[in-house]
Amino acid sequence: MQELVRELSTVFGPPGAEDAVRERIAHHVTPYADAVTIDAMGNLYALKRGDGSGRRIMLAAHMDEIGVIVTQVEEDGMLRFSGLGTLGRKMLLGQRVRFGNGAVGVISHNGGVKAEIVENETPDWPKWFIDMGVQGAAALPVGIGDVAVFDRPFVSLGRRALGGFDDRIGCAILVQLLRTLPASPHDLLFTFTVQEEVGVRGARVAAFGQDPEIGIAVDVTPAGDTPKQLTPAAVKLGHGPAIKIADAQMIAHPRLRRALIAAAQREGIPFQPEVLTFGSTDAAAIQAARAGVISGAVSVPCRYVHTTSEMIDFGDVEHAVALLTAFLTAEVDW
């Protein structure tokens, strides 16, 4: 599992340019799925048929990750950019970004050495730039509209790891589920979505097109167990996967929430209830598709979400696979 996470978490995939991620995942799921398809937006579907007695369940993890897009090229070769997905400007200074063609640059902001080292303020977006290390715009290997991701190598810390896990960890969980799941009564649609970070756009067309009865997003959720958190948050790293109650855009359906909790309790799997006051997941889009889909989410607690060093605990990841296995192999009793 660690190897799979290492592999998927380092593939290039900013919103709208998830092709490399899709190729890697398609490679992994094709031997285990009854059918693999891709829609015009780039969502990847791997269908695993049940025995006909169950429900039609969409499991969704998003392939895209936070990144940047070049908006202007200065004559001296510096690139101006804006964010793809929600980025904190505080994290940007000195970070390396990697483009699809492999070119690497470093982020800084207007003001020179003094501002970089002693400035207390966080500069506005237009003051930031990417330095590709070239002399003059003519030598640039990239241009306006090119997209890049942050350089986020996978680093194992033993039971925990650092890297870019939002939401390749969800992708890895779905791949692992598909590879290891015993017979399920349900038709399971493993859905790897695009453009979640820019407004759950892939999941919206995926759910409209596939019209599932039940939807479960698998994603990360911010952990609240670091010093002096401003708001109380109950989710801790290493205490089991989180079962979503509510976030800023949705409330998980009580039946699904209860069934997930019952599955965890039945199998003795640790879990934590999740209430998130900001952000959301693909489940918000799936829930509102057509006449409505009974939807919820299983989340992997994650520290430092949307930075270059997201931290997860593999115990939570394995328990998430176990929790979903327990839920998906049982009958749905409503």
Binding site: D39, A40, M41, N43, I69, V70, T71, Q72, S82, G83, L84, I144, G145, R201, R204, V205, F208, G209
Partner: peptide, 21 residues
């Protein structure tokens, strides 16, 4: 090219349900 990431159009509305190129 239009400056990327600025503004929005009916494309987002038409793209709500179907993945039309």
């Amino acid at each position: 090219f239009k400056h990327p990431n600025a503004g929005g159009t009916d494309a987002s509305g038409f793209g709500r349900y179907r993945a039309t190129p």
